[in-house]
Computed example of a mutant assay.
Amino acid sequence: MSTSDVPATLAEIRDGFLETPEADRLLLLLEYSDELPAVSEEVANHPEMYERVAECQSPVYIYVEVDEGIVTMHATAPPEAPTTRGFASILVQGISGLTADEVLAIPDDYPQSIGLTKAVSPLRIGGMTGMLMRAKNQVRQKR
């Protein structure tokens, strides 16, 4: 797994998971689910701006803005899907504020690097990977 291009915030999040005993990592993910930032009023009022993340079983929608080269990621995930919300929260917190180039340099296998492959199903890790890929695609289109 590549760790050289992981931006500081995402590296801190990854290290936090890896430093947490494996048995407690799911609890840490659930803490992130409670921290998913609310989307801006502008985005909330224009749901057509969102892209559905088909890789997620739960209805997850993302929207990425690039303003003067700086990326802001928005995501919605239902409260009844806390692991998915946790993954969305990690990406929103880790991507927002980065430059477009920094986002595009995030290793595609970042979701596999945070130490949750034994705590959650491969399908859920695939959902986080789908969120990351779609965010990167939106950045490519908007920069």
Results as ranks from 00 to 15, higher is better:
A11Q: 02
E31I: 00
V103D: 02
S33P: 12
K136P: 03
Q57N: 14
G16C: 06
M73E: 09
S121E: 11
V60T: 08
P82S: 12
P79F: 12
L30F: 15
H74S: 12
D5Q: 13
T20R: 08
R25E: 07
R140M: 12
R14F: 01
D67I: 13
N137H: 12
E35C: 13
S33M: 13
T83V: 15
E42Q: 13
N137T: 14
E80M: 13
K136D: 07
Y50S: 10
P21I: 10
D15H: 07
E80L: 12
E19T: 15
I70E: 08
G94I: 01
A77Q: 09
I90Y: 00
D5P: 00
K136Y: 02
L29R: 03
P78Y: 15
Q141M: 14
Y61D: 10
V139G: 08
E65S: 15
S96H: 08
L98M: 05
S2D: 15
G130M: 01
V53K: 04
V120W: 06
E19Y: 01
M133W: 08
P59L: 12
I13R: 07
I114Q: 09
P21R: 11
E31S: 11
P7H: 00
E41D: 15
I90K: 00
R140Y: 00
V39M: 05
R14W: 02
K118A: 13
L98V: 03
L30S: 12
V43W: 08
Y50P: 06
R124N: 06
Y110G: 06
V66L: 04
P59C: 10
D15N: 12
G69V: 07
R52I: 11
L132W: 00
S33H: 14
